[in-house]
Amino acid sequence: MSRIIVVTSGKGGVGKTTTTSNLGAAIAKQNRSVALIDADFGLRNLDLLLGLEERVVYTAIDVLAGECRLAQALVKDKRLKGLVLLPAAQNRNKESVQPEQMKKIATALAKGYDYILIDCPAGIELGFRNAISAAQEALIVTTPEVAAVRDADRVIGLLEAEGVNKINLIVNRVKPWMVEENKMMSVEDVLELLGVPLIGVVPDDEKVIVATNKGEPLVLGEYDSLPAQAYLNIARRLEGEKVPFLDLMANQGNLLTRLRRMFGG
């Protein structure tokens, strides 16, 4: 049984595309096949983050127009067996695709891959509705900021209304020192508000940006780095494994607060 998962957030720039590419690579590294769908029409960049830009020939639009077969449009990642990307057209606007069409594509891909990850555009308009149309579950990405969490809450409500009830949360760009100084919401604060299960915590780390710029998912390079570990852990938790959360606060605070955090989150 394959799983169709949308990666969404409401607010823009919180790390949906970063999450989709790095998690996709991490899933492939666990020997699972995974197809990534770029549903951010007009602003695609999933191919860039994966370092696959120059290999894009066809896009989802060509498939829908019948100009190529689905298999032809898929870009295979040579570095990771089992990872493919279905690119979005860059020159089209979001209105050029309808939810029903996206659903058709995702369902067709589900026949050949264990995981289908859909990179959703920001906002809650048509692009969002396209991206969630086929989804059976969702990964909500948020940063520990009030506005991002508020939008995440809104999106969770919309997903629930659409009957997508399997929703997991990824808190991205956590800065332990800021949490320590009470300048940033903690993961616990975010969880308490959103009330959906936590599946990953990714630290704010310049390695993420470096990997993005190189077009090389983290798990391919220095895969024992903290953020790479975070993505691998999410991939394992998706498989149902119980993996303890990384202690990002390890270097912060005294033993007591650290212990409290470890058991709390």
């Binding site: 939008d151 409500g157 919309l158 629930e160 508000l193």
Partner: peptide, 25 residues
């Protein structure tokens, strides 16, 4: 029977009982 999330507005010409949270927004 559920949390009222951001962006949702519940209007009712009677009493409202929310078995969950009423979130900011």
């Amino acid at each position: 029977q559920s949390t009222v999330r951001s962006g949702v507005e519940i209007r009712h010409p009677g009493t409202i009982v929310i078995f969950g949270d009423l979130n900011p927004g």
